[in-house]
């Protein structure tokens, strides 16, 4: 975005371990995301994809290793400090606040950096939300909730978006719409780290794919290598 070219990757994760209570969930996760890329984390249920996103933000029980944003170490920062460096998060359960209306949900995440989209820009991308701006968050359909969950993090000026399974449980037509949105975001210069189970969808939006298994990153493909590696991918994902 406005920053121009940065040296090295935008996000570099190395030797990342994470724990929920006694259970050791991530084992030395390592990967990198370059500025302007759309990168997915693929893998079966329980492979550690969601935990990886949460560990980047610092909202897991305990974590260690290294998470660097533009070269700066963030592993010891609290989640609000991490967010203020320009990382925004769209959780798997969408996290729409039921006691807030659509507009309040949209305006909730504070602006952390200049250069974010205006509310009007976001309503232009998601016209449904404009129609429903006065509705309570609890009254939205699944698709509308997902639109709102993505829309509200575009205002903040964060340039790295962590999206956790944005297509989960949605009708095919809405999945397509979300694909369009993600490609628009890439065109606007956002960097996206996307967790997906659905690699057919991932292939329509991403530049690169990391495959996770048992709390580790085990492989990486460029999107144009995907066809050649379909056999391996089927083994990894068990589809």
């Amino acid at each position: 975005m406005a920053e121009g070219v940065t040296e090295g990757p935008l996000l570099a994760v190395q030797g990342l371990d994470a724990f929920y209570g006694e259970s050791h969930v991530l084992h030395g996760v390592a990967f990198a995301v370059n500025g302007g890329e759309v990168v997915t984390l693929l893998g079966r249920n329980g492979a550690g994809k969601t935990t990886t996103l949460k560990s980047i933000l610092g909202i897991v029980g305990r974590r260690s290793g290294s998470v660097r944003l533009r070269g700066a170490e963030t592993i010891r920062l609290r989640s609000d400090a991490v967010a203020r460096l320009g990382i925004a998060y769209c959780p798997e359960e969408r996290g729409i606040f039921a006691s807030l209306n659509v507009e309040e949900n949209l305006l909730l995440p504070p602006v952390v950096k200049p250069g974010g989209m205006s509310a009007a820009d976001i309503y232009a991308v998601f016209p449904n939300l404009l129609e429903r701006r006065g509705s309570q968050g609890s009254k939205l359909s699944g698709g509308e909730q997902q639109m709102l969950a993505i829309g509200r993090i575009l205002r903040t000026g964060a340039d790295l978006l962590l999206l956790d399974e944005p297509t989960e449980g949605l009708a095919p037509v809405i999945v397509q719409a979300i694909g369009v949105v993600i490609r628009q975001l890439k065109a606007r210069g956002f960097t996206v780290l996307l967790v997906e189970q659905n690699f057919r969808f991932a292939a329509t939006v991403a530049d690169r794919h990391y495959v996770m298994e048992d709390g580790r990153v085990v492989d990486m493909f460029r999107n144009d290598e995907l066809d050649a590696n379909m056999g391996k991918l089927h083994d990894y994902l068990g589809v």
Binding site: L57, I59, R78, S79, D80, V82, A83, R84, A88, Y89, P91, G95, F97, A98, S99, L100, E104, L107, L108, P109, P110, V112, I153, T156
Partner: peptide, 22 residues
């Protein structure tokens, strides 16, 4: 606006903090 932070943090403090609010 301040109240919307309060209501949101009452529902899901972890997420509100992950948006950058102390």
């Amino acid at each position: 606006k301040l109240g919307s932070y309060l209501r949101a943090a009452t529902e899901n403090p972890t997420l509100v903090q992950a948006f950058g609010i102390n």
